[in-house]
Computed example of a mutant assay.
Amino acid sequence: MKAIVVGDNLLPSEKILSRCGPLREAGYEFQAFDWLAPDRNELNRRSLNVERYGPEAEPPPVGLAEAVRDAEILLTHLSPVPRAVVEAGGKLKIIGVTRAGWQHIAVDTATQRGIPVVHIVGRNANAVAEFTLGMILCEMRNIARAHEAMRGGAWYNRMVDPNRCFELGGRTVGLVGFGAVGQVLARQLSGFEVRLLVYDPYVPEATIRAAGGEAVPLEALLRQSDVVSLHARLYPETEGLIGQRELALMKPTAYLVNTARAGLIDQAALVEALQQRRIAGAALDVFWEEPLPSDSALLCLDNMTMTSHVAGTTLDALYYSAELVVEAVMGYLYQGKTDLLINPEVLSNG
């Protein structure tokens, strides 16, 4: 029995293989590929291209389509799995993705051929939640600005606006999206004794209440929150979710944080709101073009904290994701069930 592993610069195939013990014990032999880019910036560019335009937007590793012909399992992280690869896999029993996003997989083709595709939900939830909390504090308390000023020889002891600098404790935090990351962040915020507002029409109100939150409409959340943090998925219906109208609803003392997807925010509207001090500030880990262009208007703002799409990148999260996908694959192959299927209709079709 044969399994194929496709790694990349971020999660090399050897690291995925090191977590494949249960499959080896079950008798599987492995063939490894790596979807490599010259550097991390190019990897980000290719990954974003696939995320936006699908698995046909970038080529997979050379030889993958040929290798998959006699494979039963295909595991991948960021590498695209286009239609041709899926169609070549005449013996494929399952495709496993070591992350939540699956835009790089030709899922429709897999479904047509009766091949289940499993993904990992919440693999880096703790990492992103921790980072988000750090970004909130960093922007509210001028941590990055003070650090950068000292590196430049200045002693920074003023605020961007002394009338808009508050402590996080006891404030109102609004979470837009309450999946794995939002729920972990809610637990972490409880120590600050914040009032927690949540907007997520797909999560039961009872789940939000159990986490100490209050389910509210988006407009109410924007009007009342001192910090608005985005944790929604990017779909056509959520693209531009925070635009000029929504930013105008926010308090002039409020902060906007995004560690989810850049497309949730209208970039031009955000830049204008920050330039005109309509909100106190923003903290972003994701951008509309990555790497950020050197002429970006965001770089000219003094009420902005930025990081280079690293919120979910920890060794713990990456290696854990490989373990989780192996568990999901084993569960499906040997128990006939998993709650991590992207295309559950293959079960009924089978």
Rank of each mutant, 00 (worst) to 15 (best):
I105A: 08
I105W: 11
I105G: 05
I105F: 02
A106R: 12
D108F: 06
D108Q: 13
T109M: 06
A110P: 00
T111Q: 09
T111V: 02
T111L: 10
T111N: 05
Q112R: 14
Q112M: 06
R113H: 11
R113F: 11
R113V: 10
R113P: 07
G114C: 11
I115K: 01
P116E: 12
V117D: 03
V117F: 02
V117I: 10
V117K: 00
V118Y: 12
V118N: 06
H119T: 09
H119Q: 05
I120R: 03
I120D: 10
I120V: 15
I120T: 15
V121A: 08
V121L: 07
G122E: 07
G122Y: 05
G122L: 07
N124W: 07
N124T: 08
N124Y: 04
A125S: 04
A125F: 02
N126P: 00
N126G: 01
A127G: 10
A129I: 03
A129D: 05
E130Y: 12
E130R: 02
E130I: 05
E130V: 09
F131R: 02
G134C: 02
G134P: 04
G134W: 06
M135S: 09
M135P: 02
I136F: 05
L137S: 13
L137P: 11
L137C: 08
L137F: 05
C138P: 08
E139I: 15
E139V: 11
R141M: 08
R141E: 11
N142S: 09
N142V: 01
I143A: 07
I143K: 01
I143S: 04
I143W: 02
I143L: 13
A144Q: 15
A146W: 01
H147K: 12
E148V: 09
E148S: 04
E148N: 08
A149M: 00
M150E: 02
M150C: 01
R151C: 04
R151N: 06
R151M: 12
G152V: 02
G152I: 04
G152L: 10
G152W: 04
G152N: 13
G152Y: 10
G152H: 13
A154Q: 14
A154L: 13
A154G: 09
W155N: 00
Y156G: 01
N157K: 08
R158N: 09
R158V: 15
M159P: 00
V160R: 06
D161F: 11
D161E: 15
D161A: 13
D161H: 15
N163W: 07
R164T: 13
